[in-house]
Structures are given as structure tokens and as C-alpha cells.
């Protein structure tokens, strides 16, 4: 897992936004927030549901360059242009917004703004946000590029890191999912299996 050096810094900029999700391009190559982490742009909160690193031009594919290099880092050192030709971007599913002091865990009235800065939420904010589990329902029903089970469990795992008693948090979250998936035990089992 990569860590961003200064967590209060902006990490990306929104390049595509809709009511249900937004995509942001990272300022640093590979400066991606972890899957399932809570990010925000403006007053809108999102959970990272997908990330990719690819060439900036859709037609030009990267080619293998490391045959004569001793390490992977060496590839980037000997071809410094790579950092400019490649880009990392992530997509976050919108799970809520802040209005004044209150956090609402439902879709915001307006989508995020293009070129809005995206930040990785700090533990305090994550804790505040995860006091309620309304976002789980949004994740559960969203059309996602990864499986719901994966994302829901990743999100809870990420959030649990912000809580002192992460097990208690996971149990509480698990119970919420158990209620949401009361009629689908197999999915529930898959998620719970990924929470440990």
C-alpha cells in the first residue's frame, strides 16, 4: 500500500463528474488513494471504487523498457519522460456530502466540479463520516466497476483503521450489512469473509 507523504495535501483533480461518481487524475504518478478509502472534493464525499494507471494518449500503449535495467526503479530513472506520459486516475462513487456541519449520506444535489481538488480524508473525518452506515446502502446498490462485495469490504477495512477499536467497528458495520443483505446470505458471507 502506498502512502501519500502529506495527507492534508490535495492528491488529485476531478476530470470527470456525474451525480453518482467522479473521476480524478492524480498529481503524482501512482499517487493513488487505496481502494475503498474515503476521498472528498468540495463538499462531496466519495469512496474509491476503481483506479488505473495508463498512457495519456489512448492510442499509444506503453512498451517494455527494462530489459537492461537492474531494477524497476531504474526504468523510470533512465526514461524520465515516463512520469509525464503516464497518468494515474481513480474513480470514486459518491456516498454523501457535507452541508454546514452536517454530513448526509445520500447523493448530493449537484455533482462535483471539474478541476475540483480531491483530498484523501483524514482519520478524524473518516471517523465522523463513519458514525453512520448509510453509505453501505449506496455502495450496495451502485453500478460499480468492481464487485460490490469487494468494495464494501474494502471500504469498511479502510474506515476501521481510523477507529481505535477497529474490530468493534467492523462488527457494527458487518451487522449493518447483514441487515441489508438479510435475504442473501451468500453475498453476506463473501463480504464478511473479506472483513477479517
Amino acid at each position: 500500500m502506498r502512502f501519500i507523504n502529506n495527507r492534508t495535501d490535495k492528491i488529485a483533480e476531478v476530470i470527470e463528474a456525474s451525480t453518482a461518481q467522479f473521476t480524478a487524475q492524480c498529481y503524482e504518478l501512482y499517487g493513488l488513494p487505496p481502494l475503498g478509502s474515503l476521498v472528498k472534493t468540495g463538499d462531496i464525499y466519495g469512496i474509491v471504487c476503481h483506479a488505473e494507471t495508463a498512457g495519456i494518449e489512448p492510442g499509444r500503449k506503453p512498451i517494455a523498457r527494462g530489459k537492461d535495467e537492474a531494477s524497476e526503479e531504474g526504468v523510470y530513472q533512465s526514461s524520465p519522460q515516463l512520469a509525464k506520459l503516464l497518468r494515474s486516475q481513480f474513480t470514486a462513487v459518491v456516498v454523501g456530502y457535507k452541508d454546514g456541519d452536517r454530513i448526509y449520506q445520500h447523493l448530493p444535489p449537484q455533482p462535483a466540479r471539474i478541476h475540483g481538488f480531491a483530498y484523501l480524508c483524514q482519520p478524524d473525518e473518516v471517523k465522523e463520516f463513519s458514525e453512520s452506515f448509510g453509505f453501505l446502502n449506496i455502495l450496495n446498490n451502485a453500478a460499480l466497476p468492481v464487485s460490490t462485495e469487494e468494495l464494501v469490504s474494502a471500504a469498511l477495512r479502510q474506515m476501521s483503521l481510523a477507529h481505535e477499536d477497529s474490530r468493534a467497528f467492523l462488527v457494527a458495520g458487518g451487522k449493518e450489512i447483514a441487515n441489508l443483505l438479510s435475504s442473501d446470505f451468500i453475498r453476506l458471507k463473501n463480504i464478511l469473509g473479506r472483513l477479517k
Binding site: G174, K175, A178, S182, I186, L192
Partner: peptide, 26 residues
């Protein structure tokens, strides 16, 4: 139980976490 499948294929009861989550919910 909320889902009949739960009694057909019971969860891993040795795992205290799963047990804690399912107790009182499913």
C-alpha cells in the same frame, strides 16, 4: 434466521467475528 440458506450452509462458527456479526442480525 433471515435467510433459509443460512441453516442449509451454516457459516464458519469458529470465527468469533462472523458469529458476532450474525448474532442478532441474520
Amino acid at each position: 434466521v433471515t435467510d433459509e440458506r443460512l441453516s442449509v450452509s451454516p457459516p464458519d462458527i469458529d470465527d468469533p467475528f462472523i458469529k458476532d456479526v450474525l448474532t442478532g442480525t441474520s
